[in-house]
Design a protein around this nucleic acid. Structure first.
Length: 645
DNA sequence: GCTCATACTTAGCAGACTGCCT
DNA sequence: AGGCAGTCTGCTAAGTATGAGC
C-alpha cells in the first residue's frame, strides 16, 4: 500500500526542503494541543467506544456543542475547521438535533432532439413521441458500448422502451434490429465534441454555475454546523447497467419526480420546497437516521439516499468508531483464533462450518456473503454463500499438502482465484461439508451471515465479519511501516521506500486482491510492450547525452553546456518513468491498482499513516490528496507519531 | 428461524481536470 | 496549442449489517 504514497516522487523532492519548516510548525501545534487538553492522554484521545457507554447526558452534550460552535462563529471565518472529534458524541441512536437543507436537485428535463436528427425504423424515417424518443436517446448514447450487443441488455431495453411508446409506435416498432439510432448517436458525439472545444469563458460560466448550485444545494446545517452533502443531485434517468452478468441490464431507470421523494429534516427547520406546483411524497423528521432525502429506485426496488460527505461529523465519527472496533479486536484476536480452531473439532456440524468460514474470513479476507435473491442480481458470492462448485480440494498440489482452490465471482463480479494450503483439520472438514452435495449446493449449508455475526457478537461487542478486514489490513500496514522505518533511510528515503515498499504492498493488500487467474495473459503483453518502448527511449536518451557531452567538450560554449543539462534531465526523467512502469507492471499483474486505493480509503486506520508521516517528517500531502485529507481530518489532527493501532 | 425492509459502507469506473511535454 | 498520462471526483452499483414482524 505504501508505494502509491510516493506516486509523485518528483514533486516530493521539490518540496522536501520545506520538510524541516513544516515539521516545526507541526510541533508548535502539538504543544498548543497539549496545553489545551491538559491531562488528556497524549496520543489516543478518548475513544468513541468509551463515549458510547459514557454516562453523560444529552443536555451537557448539547451545551458543549453550542459553546464550541458559538466560539467558532464569533471568532473566525468558516475557514476555521470544526473539530467535531473533540466533542461529546450522541448516545442511543440519536444522530442529530437539528437538520436543515434545501432538498435535492432534480435531473434536467428532457430536451427533444432537433428535427433534423432522425430515427429510422426499417429504413424509414419515423418521428417518435417525446417519451419514446427520450428512451431511444438513452440507447443511442450507449451504442458504442459492447453491452448494447448483448441479448439480455437488448431484450430488457426493448421491453421497457415499448412501455414508453404510444400504442401506434408500439404496433409499428416490433423489432429492435430494425431500429437505426445512428443519427442520434452521431448528434450526441458532436455535442460532446462541441462541449470540449468550448471557449474558456463558456467553460468558466459552466463552472461558475456548478459552483452556484453547490453553494445553494450542496450543504446542509446539522446541529449548528454547515456540512457538505455527498450527492445532492438525483440520479438522472437512463438505462441500467449492472456489473458483471446482470439479469436486469438494459432496463429503464425511470426519472425521479418530487412525488417520489421523502424529505427528512428537523421539524423546526426551514423545510425544502418542492418545485412549483409539485409535492413531496412525504416530509418526515427522523433524527435516528442520517439521510436527508430518499426515494425508491425502480430496478431492484431498493431505497436510495442523499447523505453527507465523508468529511462530515456524522460519517467521520462512524469511521473512527470502525477503527476503534478493529483495535478492540486486536486485543482479543488470539482468543478468537484459538476458539475457532477448537471449533473445527466440534461434534456439531453447524459449529464446524461456522469455524471454517470464520477462518476463511480471517485468513483470506473473504467478505461475509449475504444471500441474494436469485435472478435479481449477478450471481456472485461471499464466504457464507460459497457453493460446492467454487472450491476444489487437492490433498497434494505442487509439493504442498491440503490445498484449497477458490474460484468464484465476488463483489462487483470480480473473480477471486486463489490456491491456498490449509490446515489438515480444515481440509477434512471441507471434505465433510462437500459430501453428497451437488455443485450448486451451499458449501456451508448450516450457516448464514446472521448466524455468523450473532456468534461474533458474542465473542466481542461490535464484532462482525468485516471487522476482520479492517483489523488485518491495518495491523499489517503498521507492521510493514515499522519494518520500513528500521531501515536507515537518509537522503534516499524515497527511492528506498519505493523499492522496499513494493514488497510490502503485496503483503499488506494481498488478502484484498482478487487474483485474476488467466485474464492476466491479456494485459501482460501490452505492459511489456510499454516497458520495452520506455527502455528503448532510455537508451536513445543516453546516447544523445553522450554525444552532447562529447560535443560540449569540443566546443566549450554555454549553449552546448546547456544542451548537456537538458539531456541529463531527460535521462533522469525517463529512468523514473521506467521504474514506475516496472513497479506498476508487477502490481497490475497481481491486480492491485484499485484495491490499493480502496483499502487506503476504507480499511487502513489513517492514524497509522499519519503517525508515520509525522515521525518521518513527511508532509501529509504526500500521502493524502485534498479529499482524503478532508475525510481523515480527525486522524491528521489527533494522531501523534507514537500512535499505536 | 425466516423474510423483508432499511440504512449504511464499500467499490469500480468514466469523465473531468491538471500538469507536463513537444 | 495540442496531446497525453496520471490523478481526482462524481456517480451509483453492490455489498454488509440489523431489526421488525411473522
Amino acid at each position: 500500500m505504501v508505494a502509491f504514497l510516493f506516486a509523485d516522487t518528483q514533486k516530493y523532492k521539490d518540496k522536501y526542503k520545506d520538510k524541516e519548516h513544516k515539521h516545526k510548525d507541526h510541533k508548535k501545534d502539538k504543544e498548543r494541543e497539549k496545553l489545551k487538553h491538559g491531562n488528556s492522554p497524549p496520543h489516543v484521545k478518548s475513544e468513541p467506544d468509551d463515549f458510547y457507554h459514557s454516562p453523560k447526558h444529552e443536555k451537557s452534550l448539547k451545551r458543549e456543542r453550542e459553546v464550541a460552535d458559538g466560539k467558532k462563529k464569533v471568532k473566525k471565518e468558516p475557514e476555521e475547521k470544526w473539530k467535531w472529534w473533540e466533542e461529546e458524541r450522541y448516545t442511543d441512536g440519536v444522530k442529530w438535533k437539528f437538520l436543515e437543507h434545501k432538498g435535492p436537485v432534480f435531473a434536467p428535463p428532457y430536451e427533444p432532439l432537433p428535427s433534423n436528427v432522425k430515427f429510422y425504423y426499417d429504413g424509414k424515417h419515423m418521428k417518435l413521441s417525446p417519451q419514446a424518443e427520450e428512451v431511444a436517446t438513452f440507447f443511442a448514447k450507449m451504442l458504442d458500448h459492447e453491452y448494447t450487443t448483448k441479448d439480455i441488455f437488448r431484450k430488457n431495453f426493448f421491453k421497457d422502451w415499448k412501455k414508453e411508446m404510444t400504442s401506434e409506435e408500439r404496433s409499428k416498432i416490433t423489432d429492435l434490429k430494425k431500429c437505426n439510432f445512428t443519427e442520434m448517436s452521431d448528434y450526441f458525439k458532436a455535442q460532446a465534441e462541441a462541449r470540449k472545444s468550448k471557449t474558456k469563458e463558456d467553460k468558466l460560466k459552466i463552472k461558475e454555475e456548478n459552483e452556484r448550485m453547490l453553494q445553494e444545494y450542496g450543504f446542509c446545517v446539522m446541529d449548528n454546523h454547515k456540512e457538505r452533502i455527498a450527492n445532492f443531485r438525483i440520479e438522472p434517468p437512463g438505462l441500467f447497467r449492472g456489473r458483471g452478468d446482470h439479469p436486469k441490464m438494459g432496463m429503464l431507470k425511470r426519472r425521479i419526480r418530487p412525488e417520489d421523494i421523502i424529505i427528512n429534516c428537523s421539524k423546526d427547520s426551514k423545510h425544502p420546497v418542492p418545485p412549483p406546483g409539485r409535492k413531496w411524497k412525504e416530509v418526515r423528521h427522523d433524527n435516528k437516521v442520517t439521510w436527508l432525502v430518499s426515494w425508491t429506485e425502480n430496478i431492484q426496488g431498493s431505497i436510495k439516499y442523499i447523505m453527507l460527505n465523508p468529511s462530515s461529523r456524522i460519517k467521520g465519527e462512524k469511521d473512527w468508531q470502525k477503527y476503534e472496533t478493529a483495535r478492540r479486536l486486536k486485543k482479543c484476536v488470539d482468543r478468537i483464533r484459538n476458539q475457532y480452531r477448537e471449533d473445527w473439532k466440534s461434534k456439531e456440524m453447524r459449529i464446524r462450518q461456522r469455524a471454517v468460514a470464520l477462518y476463511f474470513i480471517d485468513k483470506l479476507a473473504l467478505r461475509a456473503g449475504n444471500e441474494k435473491e436469485e435472478g435479481e442480481t449477478a450471481d456472485t458470492v461471499g464466504c457464507c454463500s460459497l457453493r460446492v462448485e467454487h472450491i476444489k480440494l487437492y490433498p497434494e498440489n505442487d509439493g504442498q499438502e491440503f490445498v484449497v482452490e477458490f474460484d468464484f465471482l465476488g463483489k462487483d463480479s470480480i473473480r477471486y482465484y486463489n490456491k491456498v494450503p490449509v490446515e489438515k483439520r480444515v481440509f477434512k472438514n471441507l471434505q465433510l461439508f462437500m459430501e453428497n452435495k451437488e455443485p450448486d449446493d451451499d458449501l456451508f449449508d448450516r450457516l448464514n451471515t446472521s448466524i455468523l455475526n450473532k456468534h461474533l457478537q458474542e465473542l466481542m461487542d461490535g464484532l462482525t465479519a468485516k471487522v476482520f478486514r479492517t483489523y488485518n489490513a491495518s495491523i499489517t500496514l503498521q507492521q510493514q511501516l515499522k519494518e520500513l522505518t528500521n531501515v536507515n533511510c537518509g537522503d534516499d528515503l524515497l527511492m528506498l521506500s519505493l523499492n522496499v515498499n513494493h514488497l510490502n504492498i503485496v503483503s499488506v493488500v494481498k488478502p484484498f486482491i482478487l487474483v485474476e487467474g488467466h485474464s492476466k495473459c491479456f494485459e501482460k503483453p501490452w505492459f511489456m510492450f510499454q516497458i520495452d518502448a520506455k527502455r528503448d527511449q532510455l537508451a536513445d536518451a543516453k546516447r544523445e547525452l553522450k554525444s552532447a557531452k562529447a560535443d560540449a567538450k569540443v566546443r566549450r560554449d554555454e549553449k552546448s553546456k546547456k544542451a548537456v543539462e537538458t539531456k541529463k534531465k531527460a535521462v533522469q526523467r525517463i529512468e523514473e518513468q521506467l521504474m514506475k512502469l516496472e513497479v506498476q507492471a508487477t502490481d497490475r499483474e497481481e491486480n492491485k491498482q484499485i484495491a490499493l486505493g480502496t483499502s487506503k480509503l476504507n480499511y487502513l486506520d489513517p492514524r497509522i499513516s499519519v503517525a508515520w508521516c509525522k515521525k518521518m517528517g513527511i508532509p501529509i500531502e504526500k500521502i493524502y490528496n485534498k479529499t482524503q485529507r478532508e475525510k481523515f481530518a480527525w486522524a491528521i489532527d489527533m494522531a501523534e507519531e507514537d500512535y499505536e493501532f
